[in-house]
Design a protein around this nucleic acid. Structure first.
Lengths: 195, 195
DNA sequence: ATTTGATTTAATCATTTGTTTAAATTGAAA
DNA sequence: TTTCAATTTAAACAAATGATTAAATCAAAT
């Protein structure tokens, strides 16, 4: 049997509720109840709701950026394979964490300072390599447009899922197939655009 | 001089704060203060915080869908012009209302039922016309992919603006130029993909 | 000028919410 | 077994928050 410490139980409960409802709408009492512990333990272990939130957010953000960083900055991975890796990694990640992007982007809007440091690193390493690879190909598209187009087409269906499904564009039960099929298409589209 | 009723002042204040901070984080007292009125007037005119919120959301949602609906269902507008209209309309709309998409998508995640009715209409009218136009062209892409790709590339920069700017991909002061320049590019890209 | 209904104000209520406190319990070390 | 720190519990506190009330003010109609 796996033993889960009280601290870990609180983290998991907080993760679930914060991601689901956002910071402001989540009650410390609900976290405690979800964790099956006492309300006071939240402050005993983490000091405050806000500190617990930051802990959770840091983890989520690393998750989100971790799916992109390493692939981008490797010189030995071709442009095609990079696009491929990004769409593949993100699609898989978001299939397991559908609320992740909206959660991050929403809290990011309110709490911008919190994120600046973590995000900058990734780009500064990745961008020069990408630019070099694009130049070698004699491509007219900018690195920025390439990255944003890839992320757009990959992430948008997850971000806009409630709009897409409730409008009937894609049925709820077909969603997984829809984004899975898109993985291959996106690479083709990006290549058509880029070359 | 323009005369603004108290009711209108409350709506504008609520609009601003709800869009900026979301439902849960917005305090009725802040709305009253922002409107320059008394707290009790909010309940006098709208009954409750929730009713006021729904009023605001309905307006925002119509705004968002209104930028797409009419263009799509018109048989006399060519495919190119439709893509063109959507990116043009949305880019302009979101330049004036940058927080709009994240606000809608976030609240939509929590409050799904509220939106179902309004969104369904738009698609049911538009999709058949689009499908016909695509078939006439002998194009292999699906209507769904076409719509989602166009929306992705147009909306994503606004949705992910905090991530894009704080990561340094696009500088805050260059953002307007960036999305404005993208308008033309998106149309070219979509055509490359579609044809 | 008076009346009447709509609007506004100030004060208060009841509940929720994040946090703290002090006592109880547990479990390992001496 | 005793001791002692770490952990857990139950209760309470103070502030914040959505809502309500009753009185005051205003503006138009009579």
């Amino acid at each position: 049997m796996e033993t889960v410490t009280t601290e870990e139980k609180i983290i998991r409960a907080a993760d679930k509720l914060f991601t689901q409802k956002g910071y402001a709408a989540t009650r410390t009492r609900d976290i405690a109840e979800e964790a099956g512990t006492n309300l006071a333990l939240l402050n005993y272990y983490f000091g405050s709701k806000e500190k617990l939130f930051k802990y959770v957010v840091q983890g989520k953000l690393k998750m989100l950026l971790g799916a992109m960083g390493p692939a981008l900055s490797d010189e030995h991975i071709s442009l095609e394979d990079k696009i491929s890796l990004i769409t593949e990694n993100y699609t898989n990640l978001l299939l397991e964490n559908e609320e992740l992007p909206i959660f991050i982007l929403n809290e990011l809007t309110v709490n911008r300072e919190l994120f600046a440091k973590i995000t900058q690193n990734t780009r500064q390493i990745a961008q020069p390599v990408l630019e070099k690879q694009l130049k070698e190909r004699g491509v007219e598209i900018s690195t920025t447009d390439l990255i944003i187009n890839t992320l757009s087409m990959t992430l948008f269906p997850f971000i806009a899922k409630p709009l897409i499904t409730s409008s009937g564009l894609v049925k709820e039960e077909e969603f997984v197939k829809f984004v899975t099929d898109r993985k291959k298409k996106i690479i083709e589209w990006i290549i058509k655009i880029t070359i």
